[in-house]
Amino acid sequence: MNPYLFGYLAAAIVGLSAVALTRKNPVHAVLLMIVMFFHLAVLYLGLGAEFLAAVQIIVYAGAIMVLFLFVIMMLNIKEEIEGERFTGGWPLGISLASGLFLLLIIMTGNVLPGQQGIYTAQVIASQTDTKALGSVLYTQYIFPFELASLVLLVAVVGAIVLAKKKLR
């Protein structure tokens, strides 16, 4: 990946997240987050993960943020804008988060690279990224995949139970 492109994307992702946090109008914050997701998708594209980039847009920008916006649009925005942006405990939150970040930076030096599998960048490029991901996900990792879908099914059932007014 081109280092200049990476530099721009990294700076834009951090910058947009910071600006989104400080907006008083929640609708503007959601919009900035969508722009941030687009930068994230381009980052995935640069790393050769096309499928992940498309899913990033479809799931996060296209579905989850739409639901966020849906809920926020129901709020009384005028009252929201009047109030304080942050609750009283924000210095504690920031110090905890920066402590974790520091820990992460210290630990990155000790990370061991995993063993090299058969899926090198060339193999993935010749097979297309979607095919490679699918063939591994539905054979080698079928159990964790089914486990994740079971968890999602439980969530769906839970949502229906909550939405139903009367259970017979």
Binding site: F51, A53, A54, I58, G62, M73
Partner: peptide
């Protein structure tokens, strides 16, 4: 390579124009 997914991704953005 991901043409069809790209179309689905872009058409999912259509909702934003209308909602906003």
């Amino acid at each position: 390579n991901i043409g069809l997914l790209f179309i689905l991704a872009m058409s999912s953005l259509n909702a934003y124009g209308v909602m906003l």
